[in-house]
Amino acid sequence: MNEDVVPVMRIGDTLLVALQGDLDDTTVIRIEEQLTREVSRTAATGMLIDVSRLTMVDSFIARVLARIVAMVRLLGAQAAVVGIQPAVAITLVELGVPMGHLDTALNAEQGLALLERLRRGDTGLD
């Protein structure tokens, strides 16, 4: 199961991956494996996961997204989820999936700026 399931773009030191389609659990797990492998292989310092083309994110997919971000951080890079659809965001909050600790941005452009701030250790909180 070492084949790639999603195309990964590279912008400087940042990896950009766009998820799309209706994802079954096996595909989600394979994406997780691929992305952690890619960060390690490329020594990227950041990763943006673009979910703007996902029309449904249930608790399993959300949990794996959070896990990917945690793993990327463990590898020493920064990661953010960008482009969550408004209907998906409303649904996730009502479903009760804890996503508050995730770094998120409206789109890829703002995500890149967010990663830059995270790399500088600027949390925007002070």
Partner: peptide, 30 residues
Amino acid sequence: ESDLIRVRKVLRTEAEAAGLNLVDTTKLIT
């Protein structure tokens, strides 16, 4: 697992046919 996708597809089709808005459709599918 392929039936997870089938459930989501059928629910989307029926939600749209019943005139549910996008947010309610997304909630039902989820």
